[in-house]
Design a protein around this nucleic acid. Structure first.
Length: 278
DNA sequence: CGAGGTACCTGACAGC
DNA sequence: TGCTGTCAGGTACCTC
């Protein structure tokens, strides 16, 4: 389940391999995953950069024939999506939905695969992120100064929903998913079901710090791999070794020894230590 | 506007 | 063995 650390790891693994390469061919094996809002062909583009915003990957393009003309290829992997770089052309599987051929000394391929087909790819005009509602509505990056204690506190005071629902709301802060949400709430010692506006200013500061730390550590460990997630070269992450509550129900809390329990909050599977979290 | 529910998908797994 | 039901969770969309 790619969240911010997983998407960032994919970005870092792919950038040096695809930057400067030209897309010479695009095979659309499953048209419904591609939203070609730009209506331009998907070849004759040179990749100038690979950026990330929240859980979105942003591939910046310029026309090979006219570098003054740009476009944006935007990817959201949702649950089970993968973006895989290959130096050998393998037979597409039933989960291979898009294949980009990249010109180079030898041709390489960038495959978009997604078992559950929740993931989407958009071709937008240059700087189209400003026009796309999903992207334009994103909250600040959790590791940026823009996500200030003051702005976070303002939002918390206005929301009665469970704090977990607020952390998962991408318009509040971008990139947090179920795994890092449960881990951050554990580290901050806060029960996920508590109304957001019941948090004290100290709770809010601790939670913000915990979010930043789990995100940073997640990136440092190249993401969390349970079953689906791999980086752009098929490599697994290893943050799953560091998880303290997520998928650990029935096991002992690493801090107090209490049994970790699983419940449902905001419609999501939620893992808590009933002793450490208040 | 906020909050809560559901649809979208497929595969893994539990239980009978 | 094979069937059925449930769960996994990111986001869009709907209703209240």
């Amino acid at each position: 389940m790619p969240e911010l650390p997983e998407v960032e790891t994919i970005r870092r693994s792919l950038l040096p391999l695809i930057q400067g390469r030209e897309i010479i061919k695009t095979e659309i094996l499953r048209p419904d995953v591609l939203i070609n809002q730009d209506q331009r062909p998907l070849h004759g583009w040179k990749i100038t950069d690979l950026r990330r915003r929240g859980k979105y990957l942003l591939i910046d393009l310029v026309q090979t024939a006219d570098p003054a003309v740009g476009a944006l290829l935007m990817v959201h992997l949702r649950m089970t999506g993968k973006l895989l770089y290959r130096t050998e052309e393998i037979e597409p599987t039933k989960h291979t939905h898009l294949r980009f051929s990249l010109k180079g000394k030898d041709v390489s391929w960038l495959d978009f695969e997604d078992v559950r087909r929740f993931g989407r790819v958009w071709l937008l005009p240059a700087f189209g992120e400003l026009e796309n509602p999903g992207l334009a509505g994103l909250g600040p990056e959790p590791l940026s100064a823009e996500w200030s204690p003051e702005s976070f506190w303002d939002i918390l005071q206005r929301r009665r929903a469970p704090i977990k629902a607020v952390l998962l709301d991408q318009t509040v802060v971008a990139g947090i998913g179920n795994i890092y949400c449960d881990e951050a709430l554990f580290r901050a010692g806060i029960l996920p079901g508590r109304p957001a506006n019941s948090l004290s200013p100290e709770d809010a500061v601790r939670l913000q710090e915990a979010v930043r730390n789990v995100i940073k550590e997640g990136i440092g460990h190249r993401g969390t791999s349970f079953r689906d997630y791999v980086d752009g070269l098929g490599g697994k992450g290893y943050f799953q070794q560091c998880l303290q509550v997520y998928r650990r129900s029935g096991e002992n809390c690493t801090v107090c020894g209490e049994t970790i329990i699983k419940c449902k909050v905001a419609g999501r599977g939620t893992h808590i230590c009933p002793h450490c979290q208040k």
